[in-house]
C-alpha cells in the first residue's frame, strides 16, 4: 500500500506513498532488504513522486540502501521528489551520492 515494489530485469523499482517518517521508513527498509537478498538485483530506483513529507528517518533508509547497492557495484536513483521533499534531500546532501531525476522514464532514457 505505502510501499510498492516491482522488479524490472536486474533493477528494483520502489514507489513510496505518503509521509516517509520512521513508521513508513521501517516498512520500506524491511521490504527492500528482503528483495535485495536476490543476488540478481543490482540497481535500485526509488520513486518519491507521491511522498509529501520526509525526515531524517526517511533519509536514513535511502542512504542505507545506497550503501548496500553501491557495495554490490550497482546504481541507485531517486525520482520524482517534489517540494518539500526535494528541499530536504538537497539539504542532506544525498543528491551528491544518489542522482535525482524527474521521472522513471528519464532513467530509461539515460
Amino acid at each position: 500500500m505505502d510501499v510498492e515494489i516491482k522488479q524490472v530485469r536486474n533493477t528494483l523499482v520502489v514507489r513510496v506513498q505518503g509521509e516517509l517518517d520512521m513508521l513508513i521508513a521501517g516498512k520500506m527498509r524491511k521490504e527492500i532488504d528482503e528483495k535485495l537478498k536476490d543476488d540478481k538485483i543490482k540497481n535500485l530506483i526509488v520513486n518519491l513522486e507521491k511522498v509529501t513529507f520526509i525526515d531524517s528517518s526517511g533519509l536514513g533508509v535511502l542512504i542505507g540502501r545506497y550503501k548496500k547497492i553501491a557495495a554490490n557495484g550497482g546504481r541507485m536513483y531517486i525520482v520524482g521528489a517534489k517540494s518539500p521533499v526535494d528541499k530536504i534531500l538537497f539539504f542532506s546532501g544525498i543528491n551528491k551520492l544518489v542522482p535525482m531525476y524527474n521521472s522513471e522514464q528519464d532513467i530509461i532514457n539515460i
Binding site: D21, M22, F53, D55, S56, S57, P84, I88
Partner: peptide, 20 residues
Amino acid sequence: LDDIEEIKLVVSEAVSNSII
C-alpha cells in the same frame, strides 16, 4: 506553507529522537 513544512520536520525529528 514552507514554514509549516519546516515546523512539521522539526517536530518529527524531536519526537523520533524521544522514541528511538
